[in-house]
């Protein structure tokens, strides 16, 4: 078979990224321009500022990606782009860029769902084995997905309210930890003990999650302790909080693996970089003879390598868009 080179484009939130991946497994070059330092001063991503940064960066990032690969658009087989979900203004820059390239160079255009991208970040670590269960955990998503084969997604459950990463950010905020707070809570948790009592949310037999109750419980606990004049032990609270998150995630995921008689698990999304979550899943998978893959830390967060990789399998699956492709802030993975 002739080699297939996919140019991936990702701009759904605060990272502008381009990547070229060969045959869905070999990364040729990836460039990520992150805006974390810009948004830090606002305590979170400001959508209009993110959109402005994307258009400012776009040709620089594309240029660097092509130069690193020592390739031109002519060498590319097809263009893959995140069309949603995400921040609409941000997505539009990437989508317009992809459509323009597809039009100017007469290349196939492949629409990629952001979550499909996160799942396929694992394919760059190890070729996916099916059937599998994917636990997608990020600032915008908490979902359990069943995949029977490549590019086939069946959603088993998802969060009914906040995403797990969003919950980390809000808890970080009440503890006065600078944005983005997730990695810092993970670090604090590793230094603390589980001493605070917090409720396990949605402790039922479904595959769904809920994190807004847990978030409120932490916020209330902090406020009550402050009113009583008690000092919060941040390490211990982070540990107690993270323990509850882990219990909720592992319970539902392990149940799905058992119910569907699946022996392959992958984690996906920014929160998949969390060491506490990784450690617990490693332990449980080894106990239960489950094969597991975690995305490399570098590609747990948003990047175009995962979009180019997912784009390869979408390409093989015949997924195509024409130049009227539009971005959408919310859409189901299918």
């Amino acid at each position: 078979m002739k080699d297939i080179y996919i140019l991936g484009i990702e701009s759904s939130c605060d990272e502008t990224s381009f990547s070229i991946v060969k045959n869905g497994v070999e990364e040729i070059s990836t460039v990520i321009s992150t805006q974390i330092d810009i948004h830090k001063q606002y305590g979170g991503v400001v959508p209009e500022i993110a959109s402005r940064a994307h258009i400012k960066n776009i040709t620089f990032v594309l240029d660097e990606c092509l130069s690193e690969a020592n390739m031109t658009i002519d060498d590319i087989t097809a263009i893959a782009v995140t069309y949603g979900p995400g921040l609409i203004g941000s997505l539009l820059v990437g989508v317009e860029c992809a459509k323009t390239l597809a039009y100017l160079y007469k290349k196939p255009l492949i629409p990629v769902h952001h979550i499909a991208g996160h799942i396929y970040a694992n394919n760059l670590v190890k070729r996916l084995e099916f059937p599998l269960i994917a636990l997608v955990i990020s600032g915008g998503h908490t979902e359990l997905i069943y995949m029977e084969k490549d590019y086939s997604f069946k959603k088993l459950g998802s969060t009914l309210d906040d995403a797990v990463g969003e919950c980390y950010d809000k808890v970080a905020k009440v503890l006065n930890i600078e944005y983005p707070g997730g990695p810092k809570i993970d670090k604090l948790a590793s230094l603390g003990k589980n001493t605070y009592e917090l409720p396990i949310p949605l402790n039922d037999d479904s595959y769904n999650f809920s994190f807004s109750g847990l978030k409120s419980a932490v916020i209330n606990l902090v406020h009550n302790e402050e009113q009583r004049g008690n000092l919060i032990n941040k390490e211990n609270l982070a540990c107690s909080f993270q323990d509850v998150v882990i219990k909720s995630l592992t319970k539902k995921t392990m149940k799905a693996l058992k119910d569907y008689n699946v022996h392959n698990l992958i984690l996906a999304g920014g929160v998949a970089a969390n060491s506490g979550i990784r450690n617990k899943f490693t332990e449980l998978c080894e106990e239960n003879n489950i094969n597991y893959t975690f995305p490399s830390i570098k590609y747990a967060t948003d990047n175009a390598a995962m979009i180019a990789t997912a784009g390869f399998y979408a390409y093989l699956d015949g997924k195509r868009a024409d130049i009227t492709l539009n971005a959408t802030s919310s859409c189901e993975l299918e």
Binding site: I55, L62, G89, L92, E96, T100, L104
Partner: peptide
Amino acid sequence: SYTGIRIGMTFAKIMAYTL
């Protein structure tokens, strides 16, 4: 329109840069 501006500008920048 902030969003509108970026549509035409993305096309123009990418066209000018690549071609």
